[in-house]
């Protein structure tokens, strides 16, 4: 598998590490009422059969974390964006 790093271009799978679903957002509240949001964030996943936004880390390269949209059935890469974004903007669609 070839993974396109937003900084370095397309590189081999062996240069990267994987973290999982990139659509989950860490809750900002630590109030008891936010329990289900925390459980969702840490544990629950859509685990889609098809396109999936996911976190990758160019661990043996530029060390950037990025979001990759990849089909979990065909492994086809559909989109990519730096996790932080150039301006902190969220690049997920």
């Amino acid at each position: 598998m070839r993974i396109p790093c937003p900084n370095c271009g397309e590189r081999g799978l062996e240069e990267f590490s994987y973290r999982g679903d990139a659509t989950v957002t860490r809750p900002t509240s630590i109030e008891p009422s936010s329990e289900s949001a925390w459980l969702d964030y840490v544990y629950l996943r859509d685990n889609p059969y098809g396109p999936h936004w996911e976190f990758w880390h160019h661990i043996s390269g530029c060390r950037a974390w990025f979001r990759l949209k990849r089909d979990t059935v065909t492994h086809k890469v559909l989109a990519v964006a730096l996790a932080a974004g150039v301006d902190g903007e969220d690049h997920r669609s």
Partner: peptide, 14 residues
């Protein structure tokens, strides 16, 4: 280090 990079880049990029 990877853990810190994750939180810095993905959770608290600000």
């Amino acid at each position: 280090l990877a853990h810190m990079e994750f939180y810095h880049q993905c959770v608290w990029p600000g």
